[in-house]
C-alpha cells in the first residue's frame, strides 16, 4: 500500500522555490485551554503555514525556561492528551493547515502508542516530533505511526556528523528539523545564531537531500528568520511566540497583539 500524502508533504510539494514556510509552535493549553484552537486558526490567517502543537510534559529536558513555563501552565490548566485531540478535531472543522504534535515520549507511552497514533491519525494530525526518541529508539513508535499515516520528523543539530544527517534524512518523513544552535529551546540574540549557522546549513544541504528542511531554535524576528532560512525551506518559531503571548495575556486585545507579532514574523511588517 502506498501511504496517502500528508498535508505536510503536500505543503512542501506545492511550495515555490523561493517561498519560505513559517511553522509556529504553541503548547496546547497555553495560555489557557479555551484559546488554543482560536490561536491556531489565527496563526494560519496571519501567515503560518504549519503548526506544531506542543504536548506539555512535566520534565521537558530539551526546553529552555520559556517552554518550561508554557508547559507547566498548560499542565496546571488541566491539559490532557484527550483534550489535545479534541483541539485538533476542532481545528479540522475549519482548517486544513498541516499540524504536527510535538512532545516527549513518556506521555505517549503512558497513553499507549497504538491508541495515541490511532487517535492522532483520526483527529487529523499529520506528523510527530518527539525530541527524546531519536532514530536509535524510533522502533518504539515508527511502525505504528506509519500505519496511521503520521510523518515522523527527526532533528539534526550543528554537532551531528554528516553520516548522522544522512541517517536522520532516511528516517524522516515530511521534513527534517534543523536545530540551529546546540542548546535548549529559547529565543536568542540574532547574531549568536547567525554566526554559527552558515556552515551547519551548508552541511545540512549536502547531506539532507530527501526531505525539505526547516530551521528552528533561537529565532525571534523576521530579520533572524530571513537570514537563517535563506538556504532552506523555512523556519520554526516557538519560544519567541510564547514570550509574545506571555507579554500580552490576559490584557484586553491580547490575541490581536499576538497575531500582529505573527504577521511581523512572516512579512516584516504588521
Amino acid at each position: 500500500m502506498i501511504a496517502q500524502k500528508t498535508r505536510i508533504q503536500s505543503l512542501f510539494e506545492n511550495k515555490s522555490d523561493d517561498e519560505k514556510i513559517m511553522s509556529l509552535f504553541i503548547s496546547a493549553g497555553y495560555p489557557d485551554l479555551e484559546s488554543t484552537v482560536e490561536l491556531i486558526l489565527g496563526f494560519e490567517v496571519n501567515g503560518a503555514e504549519l503548526i506544531e502543537l506542543g504536548m506539555p510534559f512535566s520534565d521537558p529536558l530539551a526546553d529552555g525556561p520559556t517552554i518550561q513555563y508554557a508547559s507547566n501552565t498548560a499542565i496546571s490548566n488541566g491539559i490532557t492528551m484527550s483534550k489535545i485531540f479534541e483541539m485538533v478535531r476542532e481545528v479540522r472543522k475549519s482548517s486544513e493547515i498541516p499540524l504536527i504534535l510535538m512532545g516527549y515520549i513518556n506521555p505517549i507511552l503512558k497513553y499507549g502508542v497504538e491508541r495515541f497514533c490511532k487517535e492522532a491519525g483520526e483527529s487529523g494530525v499529520d506528523g510527530l516530533i518527539i525530541p527524546d526518541a531519536p532514530v536509535e529508539e524510533s522502533s518504539i513508535i515508527s511502525k505504528t505511526a506509519d500505519e496511521y499515516n503520521l510523518n515522523l520528523i527527526y532533528l539534526v543539530a550543528p554537532n551531528s556528523t554528516n553520516e548522522r544527517m544522512r541517517l536522520v534524512d532516511q528516517h524522516s518523513n515530511g521534513f527534517v528539523y534543523c536545530v540551529s544552535v546546540t542548546g535548549v529551546t529559547g529565543a536568542r540574540e540574532g547574531e549568536e545564531v547567525a554566526k554559527s549557522v552558515e556552515r551547519f546549513i551548508d552541511r545540512v544541504k549536502s547531506n539532507v537531500t530527501k526531505n525539505p528542511k526547516l530551521v528552528g531554535f533561537g529565532i525571534k524576528s523576521y530579520e533572524d528568520a530571513k537570514v537563517i532560512s535563506k538556504e532552506v525551506d523555512g523556519f520554526i518559531v516557538g519560544s519567541a511566540l510564547i514570550d509574545a503571548i506571555r507579554k500580552e495575556y490576559p490584557k484586553k486585545g491580547w490575541k490581536d497583539k499576538v497575531f500582529s507579532f505573527v504577521r511581523k514574523l512572516k512579512f516584516g511588517k504588521a
Partner: peptide, 21 residues
C-alpha cells in the same frame, strides 16, 4: 549493545546529545 536490560534502558535523549553519548 544498545543499552537494554531486558526491555529497560536505551538512549532516550535529544539529537544534540547523540554524538556525546
Amino acid at each position: 549493545k544498545t543499552g537494554y536490560f531486558g526491555e529497560y534502558g536505551g538512549k532516550f535523549v535529544p539529537e544534540i546529545l547523540i554524538p556525546a553519548i
